[in-house]
Design a protein around this nucleic acid. Structure first.
Lengths: 153, 153
DNA sequence: CGAGTGAGTTCGTCAAGTGAACTCAGGCGG
DNA sequence: CCGCCTGAGTTCACTTGACGAACTCACTCG
């Protein structure tokens, strides 16, 4: 346990990340992006989000460097742009997997999880694990000691 | 890539989990819970969230079985209750770590991350990893193949 | 008995999300 | 060339949610 006064919440990375992707629909947009959705109309159709909100979320995700707009043209249509993940966006994958795993465990309601993740190379199921730099795999939060870092100023 | 029509978004675990902990402040409440905060007044003080919102979030987290109310009394005070993580709540730890790691990498702004996680046993830094059941550690989303599961009905 | 405190509720205000209708650019068929 | 279609986006009226200050309530202490 960390004494609550000893660290600076205003710089907390959890809060910071949520400020970027924590608005309604943002993470669901990214879920679809990871599944290959790229076009505005497809996001709109599969998510059912209001157009205005979707425009806004895609815009801020682009601003934040999580998605980038790429021009394309389908034949017989004018040029449009699609939304693709940047490396910064791809690094949000563990966040989505973490949310998914928790839901799979606690919300499945007796049914199987609707989506399975497998290693592309060997076909085995993939999951998130907490590991330390010495190679130990931890069983959960109890094995972790959070430590406030002293500010360098 | 999964063909977008081939899976049932309405049962998506990401959306389900976000429906439970995706409201404003919920994940920040849990962050503090993992750092040892337990009392209403302490949550209120460190988060700065409006009382009414905090009451609501704590209530739904208890309803959802993520926190539980435990009675206690400090000396010289009447009996109150504090909020503690249940196992279901503790399993949200990877989600918070995922958000934190992303923020540490992309929002640190040249400074060190304000909070470090270390293995209680060996003291080494802890991080999240994607691993498959064959023991391979994956480098990221590109090595994962999502696969829609056929419904059993 | 009166003041203090932790936890919570109420309330007016303001921001955000929602769904329907409207706009706009360009390609296409006639 | 004209009117229509389509994807992307904006506007608008409405509802929901967040905010901060003030109020309530139960209990303890002096």
């Amino acid at each position: 346990m960390v004494s609550e006064a000893l660290w600076d919440r205003s710089r907390c990375s959890v809060a910071g990340t949520l400020a970027v992707v924590g608005e309604k629909w943002s993470l669901l947009v990214l879920r679809e992006a990871f599944l290959g959705v790229r076009r505005f109309a497809d996001f709109q159709r599969v998510l059912g989000a209001p157009r205005a909100v979707l425009t806004d979320r895609l815009g801020t995700l682009v601003e934040q460097g999580i998605l980038r707009r790429v021009p394309y043209q389908a034949q017989g249509e004018r040029q449009r742009h699609e939304y693709r993940l940047t490396p910064k966006g791809i690094d949000l994958y563990p966040t989505l997997v973490a949310l998914m795993q928790w839901g799979d465990r606690y919300l499945a309601d007796g049914e199987d999880a609707p989506l399975e993740l497998r290693h592309r190379d060997c076909g085995e199921p993939v999951h998130l694990a907490l590991v330390c730099d010495a190679g130990h795999e931890l069983s959960g939060a109890r094995e972790v000691r959070p430590q406030a870092r002293v500010r360098a100023d």
